[in-house]
Amino acid sequence: MNDHRGPWFILTGLLLGIGIGIGIAWGMPQAQPVDTSPASLRYDFKDEYRYMIAAAYAISGDLGRAQARLATLNESDPVQSLGEQAQRMLAQNSSIERVRILANLSEAIQSQPQATPSPQGGADSPSPVTPLNEASPTLELPTATPTPEPIEATADSRFTPTPTDTPFPTLPPLPTATLRPTRTATSTPGAPFTLVNQSTACDPQQPGLLKVNLQNALGQPAPGQELVITWFGGEEHFFTGFKNEISPGYADFTLASGIEYALSLSEGQTRITGLIAPSCTGEDGKPYLGSILLEFRQP
């Protein structure tokens, strides 16, 4: 090789080395991943993890903690994920009690005041304050371990940010033990819903839908409400709040042709019978099923 070709061989070597380095880092086979986060879990394990978050919330009523836990799943819309899981569980004939647990958490998240910080950021955004280490400074922790050095929290390590020198350092104790929020009051307590409007619509894009909209006494959408639809030989449960893109108080159900349905809500205190999908005619003269629109409001 000619010694007068200049320093290009250095660049060549660097590029070659970078390629080898990345190849090793990305291609090195690993027997099993370690130290993963809930965001990387397989979908069925994620469902179980999400269910446990909702179940723990149902017991403790600690919405802040539930939201922080949901944030570890790193989903863009946790409410939608809760809704999708609820629909899957309904399709798999899970018990209504289990579905209701998810619905309650979804409802609580949606009904909290807008000013409340919501930890939606996931792994790439600053971590929410997580009340897991909510030791009060006035209480002496029953532990002989030395007080951990305060370190900065990161999003992916809510409870134990992981710098390289210590395996499990912890967040410093929070300044107060009152961070655990009380259970958020729902926007739809009490009185049973009453039907304020019933109409039919013909939309060939959405044939045969029973569309239900619920509003509370303040005129706000009411998510997380259980609706029971029955027909001769069948019964289905569904909930408002799982189609947030339409309205938190919206739910729908696909009607079959020629079948009469009855809808009940408010734990059976409100019941609408005789629901039959109307027949509509398309521009091409072909018939299709129309939709029924029901609007309920709390007095």
Partner: peptide
Amino acid sequence: GAGLGLYYGWVISPVEYIDTIPSTLR
């Protein structure tokens, strides 16, 4: 270059695992 490549592959842009099982959680 290999050092730079390893740093990039392990620190800056590490492999992201998907479909893991709970026993691998931190």
